[in-house]
Structure formats: C-alpha cells, structure tokens
Simulated scan of single mutants.
Amino acid sequence: MMQGRFIALEGGEGVGKSTQALLLADALRNRGLEVIVTREPGGTPGAEAIRTLLLEGTPGDARGWGPRAEALLFAAARADHVEKLIRPALARGAWIICDRFLDSSRAYQGGGSGLSDVDIMALHGIGSEGLLPDLAILIEVSPDIVAARLARRDGNRSDRIGGRDAAYHARVAKAFNAFVKAEPRRFARIDGSGAPETT
C-alpha cells in the first residue's frame, strides 16, 4: 500500500482556503483516491474543543489568551489531530487536505504576535514530531477583496483571531510571504482573487 499525501492550504482570513479544500478533494476523489478534508485547529474531538477555547475564549475572561498560551493551545490541538487522524490516514494511503496547519501558527502566533519561529517549531517538534505537509498551498488575496468577503461571510462578527486589527493581519501576510521565499520547494503560491473554480 502506498503512503498517502498531505496538503495544507494556508493564508489569511477570507482567502478561500475552505472552498478550495473542498474543490481539491472532489478533484482527487474523481481520480479514485480516498480523501479526508480536515481543519486546524480541529479534526478530532479534543482538537475541536481546543478550537472553541481559542476562537471564542472563556467566559468572564475579557483579555483572552496571551500569545504563548495561544501557541501552546494550537500545538496541543495539532498534536491530537496528527496522532489520531492525520498519521493513521496517511499510513493507510489516504490523502489529507487540511485547512491550515503549522505555517498558520508560524504566521499568526509568530509573525502576528511576535513569538519566535524557533519556539513555535520546537513546540511542533515535541507535539507532532515535526510532521510537515508534502505541499503547503498559500492562497493570496488583496486586503480589499478579503474585507468584502469577510463582510459577506461574517457580517460584523469575527472570532477572536480573525477580528484582530489590520496591522496584525498585515504582519501575518508578511510572515507567510517570508516562508515562501525561504522554502520555495515546500510551497505553491496561488492567487485566490477570482471565482473559486478558476483559482
């Protein structure tokens, strides 16, 4: 039996990762492959519980998680996801398409919140034994288009991370751009500005 393949879709808020994940999964299934679409944080009951803590916060805590606690929670969710869903599926030959993975932590908690890439990679080494996707696809869209998409999708309600200010999201985008330049063989970069079927 052949080892499966692991593809992560990366990028900022509202660039179309979830939509593209479903379209890619359909195309691969049409080739007779077993495909699992999942997300980070999430994908397993434990990781989904952590997702709720991260994106909604805890009652009575207006300040929310600090950057280090946030990074630890993402790493814990990822560890559970990798151990219970991703590695077993890859071992049986399935293809995994994940809406975000490690590079989002590097961009958001690193680039956006100022934690070092070394620390985030150390957490990933401990929690997920350093697993990397076979390919990370970075979807990029201009801030104006993203703003219009998010207004349609979310109205005036964003989660704790998506609702951070424009400067934060600009730092996230800059970090993603730096990763692609530093590791061009690990990334594919696509323009997500058009209609979903043409991206």
Results as ranks from 00 to 15, higher is better:
residue 100 R to E: 03
residue 45 P to E: 03
residue 134 D to G: 01
residue 61 D to S: 13
residue 129 E to Y: 07
residue 108 Y to A: 02
residue 112 G to S: 01
residue 102 L to Y: 14
residue 106 R to P: 02
residue 130 G to A: 07
residue 115 L to K: 09
residue 56 E to S: 09
residue 129 E to G: 15
residue 85 L to Y: 12
residue 39 R to D: 02
residue 103 D to F: 07
residue 86 I to G: 07
residue 59 P to A: 14
residue 29 R to V: 01
residue 101 F to V: 00
residue 138 L to T: 08
residue 151 A to K: 15
residue 32 G to M: 02
residue 65 W to Y: 12
residue 85 L to T: 05
residue 107 A to E: 06
residue 132 L to H: 03
residue 71 A to H: 06
residue 135 L to G: 11
residue 124 H to W: 15
residue 51 R to W: 00
residue 64 G to P: 15
residue 80 D to W: 01
residue 84 K to V: 14
residue 82 V to F: 11
residue 36 I to G: 08
residue 91 A to I: 14
residue 92 R to T: 05
residue 96 I to T: 03
residue 159 D to Y: 02
residue 135 L to I: 00
residue 39 R to N: 10
residue 29 R to N: 04
residue 141 V to P: 11
residue 150 L to S: 11
residue 87 R to E: 06
residue 130 G to V: 14
residue 113 S to E: 15
residue 122 A to L: 06
residue 80 D to V: 00
residue 99 D to H: 05
residue 119 D to G: 10
residue 69 A to F: 05
residue 74 F to W: 05
residue 140 E to S: 09
residue 27 A to V: 09
residue 123 L to N: 02
residue 121 M to S: 14
residue 60 G to Q: 04
residue 55 L to S: 13
residue 157 R to W: 13
residue 151 A to R: 15
residue 65 W to F: 12
residue 86 I to F: 07
residue 85 L to H: 03
residue 61 D to V: 09
residue 83 E to S: 10
residue 75 A to W: 06
residue 107 A to P: 12
residue 80 D to F: 02
residue 113 S to N: 07
residue 43 G to S: 01
residue 148 A to C: 02
residue 92 R to Q: 12
residue 69 A to W: 04
residue 53 L to A: 05
residue 92 R to P: 04
residue 54 L to I: 15
residue 49 A to D: 11
residue 141 V to Y: 09
residue 119 D to T: 13
residue 88 P to K: 12
residue 83 E to R: 13
residue 67 P to R: 09
residue 99 D to K: 00
residue 163 G to P: 01
residue 124 H to L: 05
residue 27 A to E: 08
residue 165 D to I: 04
residue 154 D to I: 03
residue 156 N to P: 10
residue 68 R to H: 12
residue 83 E to A: 14
residue 158 S to L: 06
residue 161 I to R: 01
residue 158 S to N: 11
residue 149 R to C: 12
residue 58 T to F: 14
residue 98 C to G: 02
residue 64 G to S: 06
residue 73 L to E: 00
residue 93 G to D: 09
residue 61 D to K: 07
residue 158 S to P: 10
residue 127 G to F: 15
residue 78 R to A: 00
residue 140 E to R: 11
residue 144 D to P: 01
residue 124 H to R: 11
residue 34 E to T: 14
residue 34 E to N: 01
residue 83 E to T: 06
residue 61 D to F: 15
residue 98 C to T: 04
residue 121 M to G: 03
residue 42 G to H: 00
residue 78 R to Q: 04
residue 135 L to H: 08
residue 61 D to Q: 12
residue 117 D to R: 10
residue 75 A to V: 11
residue 99 D to L: 03
residue 34 E to W: 02
residue 95 W to P: 05
residue 63 R to T: 12
residue 153 R to P: 09
residue 127 G to D: 04
residue 145 I to A: 12
residue 51 R to A: 01
residue 89 A to I: 12
residue 71 A to K: 04
residue 102 L to A: 10
residue 38 T to A: 05
residue 164 R to L: 08
residue 54 L to M: 10
residue 150 L to V: 15
residue 54 L to Q: 02
residue 74 F to S: 02
residue 103 D to Y: 09
residue 53 L to Y: 11
residue 67 P to T: 08
residue 122 A to I: 09
